[in-house]
Design a protein around this nucleic acid. Sequence first.
RNA 1: GCGGAUGUAGCUCAGUUGGUUAGAGCGCCUGCUUGUGGCGCAGGAGGCCGUGGGUUCAAGCCCCAUCAUUCGCCCCA
Length: 444
Amino acid sequence: MSLSTQPYKGARDFYPKDKRVQKYMFDVLRKAVEKFGYEEYDAPILESLDLYLAKSGEEIVNEQTYSFEDRGGRHVAIRPEMTPSVSRMVAAKRQELVYPLRWYSIPNLWRYERPQRGRLREHWQLNVDMFGDPHITAEHEIILLVDTILRDFGAKRSMYQIKINSRKFTDYVLLEYLSLDQVQAHTISKLIDRMQKMDHEDFIVQLDVLCTPSQREVGTVQRLLDVLSAKSIADLPQSVKDHASLKELEAIMNLLQEQGITNAVFDSSLMRGFDYYTGIVFEVFDMHPDNNRSMLGGGRYDGLVGLFGVEPVPTVGFGFGDVTLKNFLEIHELMPVLHPEADVYVVLIGDVYAKAQKHLSQMRKLGLNIVVDTSGRKIAAQIQTAEKKDIHFVMFIGEDELSTEQFVLKNLQTGEDNKHGLNRLISVAKDYRQVEDEGSDSSL
RNA sequence: GCGGAUGUAGCUCAGUUGGUUAGAGCGCCUGCUUGUGGCGCAGGAGGCCGUGGGUUCAAGCCCCAUCAUUCGCCCCA
């Protein structure tokens, strides 16, 4: 049996073409979050398994985490998410950090599960968190940042929708307004999470099953449906409309609205999987009919840093996976044509490799990225190679050029040939790169 | 963890009720064309038909298993 050339299940190889896409995406992400002053951090890919057990009972630890015992008998996990790590880091330096912290990272994460569209075993995820701001200014900034990121990728607001809800409001509705017990509330919140994907009648039946006879008598299911069906805060039943959590939501929505973010909507059925959220939660949905799914999500989690035995630090954050981002860009045709790093492909004519070195060094010294064809193949083949590599210019160096100090620079897109002295040639090639950069920026 | 679909050339895929040396398009290499690409023409390389068993005189095709890919479910970062 021969060795397989396939990568491990659910993991990806990044050939240069793929890596270029990743570099582009990460570059846009970094620039966007840095516009808001966020600082990049990192943490180890291995963590103590205990770190994830703190949120005990969740499936992620039991079944979806890669874990093993090291040679010293320690229980180790490959990080399935970044939030515990960053909470740990903040807790460790709780006293000396200057708040609010604005931190981001693009970690490599692993989860053990069956791969499917938009979900692999290995992925990268932009993680952005603000620590230390208990006010809605934090939620507002984070959601504004999410909007900025998508806009920077060239997305129009019609392409995505930002759904916003509040855990405080959900808890109030389930526990107080409907008087459900803790277990019922938890089960029903999971059911609500699946509501959009389910048949509506089926949803109602399952809700009904979860209610006690006395709850049925007071119309609990219908009262919940009335809340869930509200299209806006104003649309909510009168009896829940005045809850304090809604004032926060309203304030955030208004701020976003004023900035033209009209695709942010209140959605009381938005739950999110993790139990650690304590306030506002939000999720961004792709509106493309063929990719109608959640792209990213986040919210407020004020309790996690406190798990490390220090004063809690209020936190708002979100995660945005590279696989879902790539799907979004591709389906909306937002992925730009990406060129390789090289500016010029150098075709050597005759035995001039040694004599050309001086010129090649000068080109590199002045900031040009050049590829030298050392194959000795005929010129046509060398030009074809440059074209296949999508390099913009070809330069010819032969005996004639070396003696006259005049070099032909060929633009492969236009087919145009021009003779230049070396320094002139270098600046022409560099100018093109700058024009191209500006061009791609303005199209975003 | 559960269910469906699919594995044939580098890629996308044909391959009849089981029947000689398994095909196409694109890509790749060479030549036509010795210092200039994209088009054209001519030629060429490249396949244990995912893997292992089984049925049969005979298997790419039928049966079983297994691995992989993929879509969905569960769950969701």
